[in-house]
C-alpha cells in the first residue's frame, strides 16, 4: 500500500467546477491526504517543518493545480522554493525524497490541440512541465507523465464526472501499487495509460 499526498494549489477553488468535481470523492479514499495549500497558508507563510513531515509520511506525491500562465499558481512555486531545501530534498546529503513518485494533476482551459507545435500555445504540456520534471529529478524522485483535464470551460457535467472517476481510479491504482512506472512513462498523459489499462482488463 502506498500513501498519497495531494499538494493542491488553487487560489479560487470555490469557483472552479473542474477542481471541485475532481476532488469531490477523493477524501473517501483511505490512503489519500488532500493538502489544500491555499487553505492552509493564505498568507503564503508556509510551515516548512510541517511540510517536511507530511512529505516523509507519503510515498506518492501529486502537484494538483490549474495551469496558470503555463505554470503553477504562485503558492505552489513558493512551496517548491521553501520546502525543497538544499541538504534535505536535494544536494549530496539531501536524500529524503529519494525514489518517491511524483506527477502533476492539471486542469487546463485550452484544448489538447492548442498545446501542440502547430497549435495556439506552440508547445506541448510536457514541454511546459519541464521545470517540474527537472525539480523532481533533482530531488531524486520518479516523475510520471501528468494527469490532465483539458478544455475545462467546454466540459459538460457528465464529462466532468468521467474525469473525476478516472482520477479516482488512478489514485486507487497508485495506492494499491497496481502500476508499472515504465509502462506509464511511455504515454504523454496518465489519462491515456489508464484508458489503455482499463480497456485491457476492465
Amino acid at each position: 500500500m502506498n500513501k498519497i499526498l495531494i499538494l493542491f494549489a488553487h487560489p479560487r477553488f470555490e469557483n472552479s467546477k473542474t477542481s471541485r468535481a475532481l476532488l469531490k470523492n477523493i477524501r473517501q479514499i483511505n490512503d489519500v491526504t488532500l493538502h489544500d495549500l491555499y487553505e492552509e497558508y493564505p498568507d503564503f507563510n508556509i510551515n516548512i517543518e510541517r511540510e517536511k513531515k507530511l512529505l516523509l509520511a507519503h510515498q506518492i506525491l501529486v502537484w494538483h493545480h490549474p495551469l496558470y500562465m503555463y505554470s503553477a499558481p504562485a503558492l505552489l512555486k513558493q512551496w517548491l522554493d521553501m520546502v525543497l531545501e538544499h541538504g534535505w530534498a536535494h544536494g549530496s546529503r539531501g536524500n529524503n525524497l529519494k525514489d518517491k513518485i511524483i506527477f502533476n494533476a492539471l486542469t487546463i482551459g485550452g484544448t489538447k490541440d492548442a498545446y501542440t507545435a502547430g497549435g495556439h500555445n506552440k508547445y506541448t504540456i510536457s514541454e511546459f512541465l519541464r521545470p517540474f520534471a527537472q525539480t523532481a529529478a533533482l530531488c531524486k524522485m520518479i516523475y510520471l507523465p501528468p494527469y490532465a483535464v483539458h478544455g475545462t470551460h467546454l466540459l459538460s457535467p457528465s464529462d466532468l464526472a468521467d474525469y473525476a472517476r478516472l482520477y479516482q481510479t488512478l489514485l486507487e491504482k497508485l495506492a494499491q501499487n497496481d502500476f508499472d512506472v515504465d509502462a506509464m512513462s511511455k504515454y504523454d498523459y496518465l489519462n491515456d495509460w489508464l484508458t489503455e489499462e482499463m480497456g485491457a482488463n476492465p
Binding site: 516548512i48 521553501m82 520546502v83
Partner: peptide, 8 residues
C-alpha cells in the same frame, strides 16, 4: 529574512 527560509 526569517529563521526558516534556508531556501532563500
Amino acid at each position: 529574512p526569517t529563521l526558516y527560509d534556508h531556501a532563500w
